[in-house]
Design a protein around this nucleic acid. Sequence first.
DNA 1: CTGAAAGCGCTTACAG
DNA 2: CTGAAAGCGCTTACAG
Lengths: 342, 342
Amino acid sequence: MGKPTVHDIAEEAGVSLATVDRVLNERPGVRTMTAQRVHSAIDKLGYVRDVHAANLARGRQYRFAFVLPEGQSQFLKALREAIDEAGVGLRLERVALDTIEVPLNDSVGMIRGLEALQDQGIDGLAIMANETPVVRDMIAHMKESGIAVVTLVTDQPNAERDHFVGIDNVAAGRTAGVLMGRFLGGRYGRVMVVVNSTHARDMVQRRLGFDAVINEQFPNLHTLPSLEGHDEQERTATVIAQALANQDNIVGLYCAGAGTRGVTQVIAEQGLAERIVVIGHELTIHARQALKDGLLDVVITQNVGHLVRSATRVLRAKCDGRDIIASQERIRIEIVLRENLP
Amino acid sequence: MGKPTVHDIAEEAGVSLATVDRVLNERPGVRTMTAQRVHSAIDKLGYVRDVHAANLARGRQYRFAFVLPEGQSQFLKALREAIDEAGVGLRLERVALDTIEVPLNDSVGMIRGLEALQDQGIDGLAIMANETPVVRDMIAHMKESGIAVVTLVTDQPNAERDHFVGIDNVAAGRTAGVLMGRFLGGRYGRVMVVVNSTHARDMVQRRLGFDAVINEQFPNLHTLPSLEGHDEQERTATVIAQALANQDNIVGLYCAGAGTRGVTQVIAEQGLAERIVVIGHELTIHARQALKDGLLDVVITQNVGHLVRSATRVLRAKCDGRDIIASQERIRIEIVLRENLP
DNA sequence: CTGAAAGCGCTTACAG
DNA sequence: CTGAAAGCGCTTACAG
């Protein structure tokens, strides 16, 4: 006999298909005794349900929405593309992916956007947003109405999200730190650090990890206070150029946030590629080119495809009341050099 | 109306379900005219078939076998575990995974093993083996009998495999080379290279990439002729210890093959961790520990889970006559330091 | 609290 | 060359 099916369970337990189904899906209206018989049959026969057949019968569609901040950064663009791409493949799996963009620091706009989603009858939400009370409350609200929620890229540890999909940013900062130190091979000097904003949680964490490693392992290096680039190329370029003019003996530059284009622009203009070790984040098309051109030495990155697939896997598991396989959902901190450019 | 189904196509084309199905699956016995009507309907309605429903109806089981060399290396062990693990999840997708192990340099044993597989009615094969005429012929033979074949980890470019699942080993060697050079930060000295065998194709490629980078970019370094460790810890330790005794000013060690344990053993015994930059391959449990202990500076690795999943995805696509999404099947060359240990 | 029957989207003999 | 009917493993009203 092949794999046991509901029919086998029904026969073994001496009940009908409908009852087996009720037990399987933990729906009410089954006497404890009967349920027990079904459970024994399941155990005895080693039954494991065919999810695809179940979804087919159920006509079930999972509707998930990705909430991203508005913005034109290459990372966001790549993320949006990854969502669209995954969406195509997932149609066959009966999951529909939507993306909505909410203004970054406009709570009203955000609330409105999320409420619209709720009305649309969404099953799950992956949200990438700064940590604010408004977002925290919205997440609580969503969870209450039975919507699964994961945070994406930046965590909201104080919110009741089901899971965080993204990298460990302290470890990412440490990784940047050790590469910076080792690539500099004992040279003495100062290291500049650029972040989007000194308030953003992920920036704080990366900076923390970076400094910890430099302080522990590389006494020859001195890290300077964070410069703020605010996700903008121009602004990033300006603050860096300024700092370069005011400080001598800069040997390294760690760009912990977006705005890599601003960084490479200055490096190229001032011909610093050979003299300064530059480490950035996120393998955007721009960063790829910069690696090839030698304007960037290392890129620390997370695979946007993995982010999206992990988020949908987790949301689906939550919707089905299944546990996730934690090891499979851990997002890697990838190190990319010109040599191992994928 | 929701997504179009076979019923919609049948109605639109004015034919029966059976005919739609014949066209969909390119089975013979349909007049060109009729087929054309069906195709128009498909295009017009934007039909895309529900693979899961199809598989359900078909009762189809994909049977794939992984052919691995016998051996106790941690990498092989991890690979076998990854296969077993993937197998569990894939049962629900109607694919059954088997692993067979064939003796490394015993053509008769290998032929026997593969023939047994063929008799079992396998649909696809993922094979990891040294490049030999016997293997090449077996692959040709398999392909002839309609079995999909991918090579795994080590390619067989001269065989008629459908696809290669593994990393670009030249690029991997280059990656090791640039990390070696940069971590040494301008120090002068000699770099030892250990391989499994100077004949194995992947070893040749890694060595090639490694030397190319060192020669191009790091004139301060001199690479020594390859030592052979033959996948064995003891032997690796011996050849390394010997070389260390005979050569002075060794500043780096690149272990391009297995036998990392032999390497770290010598490094630990002789207290060289601080003085020599050591780069190995494959993130086995042993390598993890060595990274943590500082006995290994860098591990270049490929994710065994990805290897297995990619292999099964490709085999499935080939069985279904579908194209693969190349970008999704590219196996990354991962760089692991203590800091970004997953 | 329980069951018989129809149906999800596709495929497979079988009959014509 | 084409079609009507049954079935894959599950779920869903509906009836009792």
